[in-house]
Amino acid sequence: MESILELRNVVKNFTGFKINGISFSLEPGYIMGFIGANGSGKTTTIKLIMNLLHLEMGEIKVFGLDSRQHEQQIKQRIGFVYDDNHFYEELTITQMTKVLAPFYKKWDWNTYNRYIHRFGLPSNKKIKTFSRGMKMKYALAVALSHKAELLIMDEPTSGLDPIVRSEILDILSEVILDERCSVLFSSHITSDLDRIADYVTLIHNGTILFSTSKEELFEKYSLVKGERSLLGENLRPYLVGYRESQFGFEGLVTDKAAVQAMLNGNALLERPTLEDIMLYCTRGRAV
């Protein structure tokens, strides 16, 4: 099956920061969580995909098309939600949508009105009077109203209360039921992705550390907790990262079976959260 999004050896240089030849791909009908700490390169990568930044090296294909050569064609099929509001605050959402909608060939007013109604957004109030959650919901309504086949979301849930976050995640889960649509969802709130992501890509300092299915990730990694005396040379090759405290240690290990056999029931092995995996993969041995 052809990837809906494919990045190959993408390079972008800034002063003091570099997107370092990153590659990953997303298959149709899946949600990919794009995780990493603040400043790791998530937004830069998304901007490169959206052609908001110029690519220096490498290749980005969306729907199998070169992102630069077929920019307009591709953007007809992409819905986007960014972390900041990019709508004109002085306009009402009715005015804003009347300006935006004609640019999408497949704009569907029924779908739009359904989402506006569902989100309880007031049509005649200026966007500047909206809360952050309302602005985000409006952005989502616009992104979902032109039959987008790929949703690109940059930190859409950051700064939102748990109810709004949950609402947005529910919508995404519904959207993905239509298997034509895929989602690239960047976030540092990994609990959101624990819930909805099928694939996870971790970026750190402009480098992709892994891009794999969530199942494979949880099969590969385990969280180990035990006494500090267990932190011997035998365990270290399996440790991706660990943290010591006065009570013992906690760490992320690969090869659960081997570690289990080695520790012989003296340590606790648990399923990690995405946050654990992100934390230990990016920080290694924590202080």
Binding site: M50, H86, Y104
Partner: peptide
């Protein structure tokens, strides 16, 4: 002055 906001929006949309 208001295109501070608009640039990101319009350049993410299918608008040449």
């Amino acid at each position: 002055t208001w295109e501070d906001l608009g640039n990101m929006l319009w350049n993410s949309m299918p608008v040449p």
